[in-house]
Simulated assay, not measured.
Amino acid sequence: MSERLKSLAAAGVSVWLDDLSRERLETGNLAALIEDSSVVGVTTNPTIFAGAIGAGDRYNDQVASLGAEGRTVDEVITALTTDDVRAACDLFADVHAATPQDGRVSIEVAPGLAHDTEGTAEQAVELWEKVDRPNVLIKIPATEAGLPAIQQATARGISVNVTLIFGIDRYRKVMDAYLAGLEEAAAAGIDLSTIHSVASFFVSRVDSEVDARLEAIGSDEAMGLRGKAALANAWRAWAAYQEVFTSERFTALAGANVQRPLWASTGVKNPDYPDTLYVSELVVDGVVNTMPQKTMDAFADHGEVTGDTVTGRKPEADEVFAALERVGIDFDDVLVVLEDEGVQKFVASWDELVETVKGQLGSTR
């Protein structure tokens, strides 16, 4: 057992792995992470599946079988990914039974639907029914078009992982969509205790974009602000979460679960920063931290838990943002760029996945 990851879990942080592949499932790697590394959930995205399906040969037999049945590329992708997610859900069944908010496995709607409300809502239902496990989370992006789809899915009793959240204003809209969905679900007689949700607040990408702009400015004050925006943004998010989920609106929803903040994009991209930065500085009881394997291994090796490093830091965060504005950082523009890039990156990965499967099908026909 990794004692450092165990300490992180004991501090109230749910450790989720940001990766899934058939190799992890079939070799027992994921089972070992559950047993030895305090891993209590998994997140996936189109990039992860593109890498998994494009590497090795563990999917070949299933692709050949589906190809022989005349399945389309999209049907094959859905079958491959939902089978992996279903198997992972089953692997986490005991974790989920013990702690229903955990033992979760996420699967994302097609990124090309990011600006299509109805298409997103329809595919959320399709994936929910296809995986057919109570511990699956359907990932829906926090785009303007995604917000009503989040509400619609929640209203139907679907548990949602809201992804691609970068800023506080959008995060507040995400929480509002979740609460509105719960209110509709309650009116329809759905047991609110069965609905779970996380809000994936992206971290390292914020520093990558802001730091590049600070370096372009180049002043001493600007350079001194590098590596501070992402954490400050997350600390603000936690303060907003505390406000919303202690409100009368939420407490009136009998049996409802909070929508836990999930720290995403926690792999450190700048080698000048500590490789556990977005874990050690985001420790607070009641959050999820989904980590790539490299970050998880780094924390297991030398990460430190020093207590709650988030609560009460909004004033400090506000000072950081005031300083960023003073040196000329337009954070609203940063958020637009990050959301556009986030969608585009997942679309590119999806296109790569389509081409990979198309090639594999072509070789079997």
Rank of each mutant, 00 (worst) to 15 (best):
S219Q: 07
D220C: 04
D220A: 11
E221Y: 06
E221C: 05
E221S: 08
M223F: 01
M223N: 14
G224V: 01
R226K: 14
G227F: 02
K228M: 10
K228I: 00
K228R: 10
K228C: 03
A230Y: 01
L231A: 04
N233K: 02
W235M: 01
W235N: 00
R236K: 07
A237P: 01
A237C: 10
A239M: 06
A240K: 13
Y241W: 08
Y241K: 08
Y241N: 05
E243I: 06
V244M: 11
V244I: 13
V244E: 15
F245M: 08
T246G: 12
T246P: 12
E248S: 15
R249V: 06
F250D: 10
F250T: 07
L253Y: 15
A254F: 14
A254C: 13
N257R: 15
N257P: 15
N257D: 14
V258Y: 13
V258A: 14
V258H: 12
V258G: 14
Q259A: 10
Q259I: 07
R260W: 11
R260V: 10
R260T: 13
P261E: 13
L262P: 06
W263V: 03
A264G: 11
T266E: 03
T266F: 00
T266W: 01
G267M: 10
K269W: 03
N270L: 08
N270W: 02
N270D: 13
P271A: 05
Y273C: 10
D275I: 05
D275W: 14
D275V: 09
T276Y: 13
L277C: 15
L277N: 14
V279E: 06
S280V: 09
S280P: 15
S280C: 09
E281M: 10
E281Y: 15
E281H: 14
L282H: 05
V283Q: 04
V284G: 07
D285A: 12
G286F: 06
G286W: 09
V287D: 02
V288F: 10
T290A: 07
P292Y: 00
Q293F: 15
Q293T: 09
Q293N: 10
K294Y: 11
K294S: 15
K294H: 15
M296W: 08
M296G: 03
D297L: 07
D297C: 09
D297E: 14
A298M: 09
A300P: 08
D301I: 07
D301Q: 11
H302A: 09
H302S: 13
E304D: 12
E304C: 11
T306W: 11
D308V: 01
D308Q: 05
V310P: 04
R313Y: 06
K314Y: 07
K314V: 12
P315V: 01
E316T: 06
D318S: 03
E319K: 09
E319P: 05
E319F: 03
V320F: 02
F321T: 00
F321G: 01
F321R: 03
A323H: 06
E325W: 04
E325D: 10
R326D: 12
V327L: 02
D330L: 02
D330P: 08
D333M: 08
D333C: 08
V334W: 02
V334S: 03
V334C: 00
L335C: 14
L335S: 14
V336H: 12
V336D: 13
V337A: 09
L338N: 00
L338C: 04
E339I: 04
E339N: 09
D340G: 10
E341G: 03
E341W: 06
V343K: 08
Q344V: 07
K345W: 01
F346T: 05
V347P: 12
S349N: 10
W350D: 09
W350E: 12
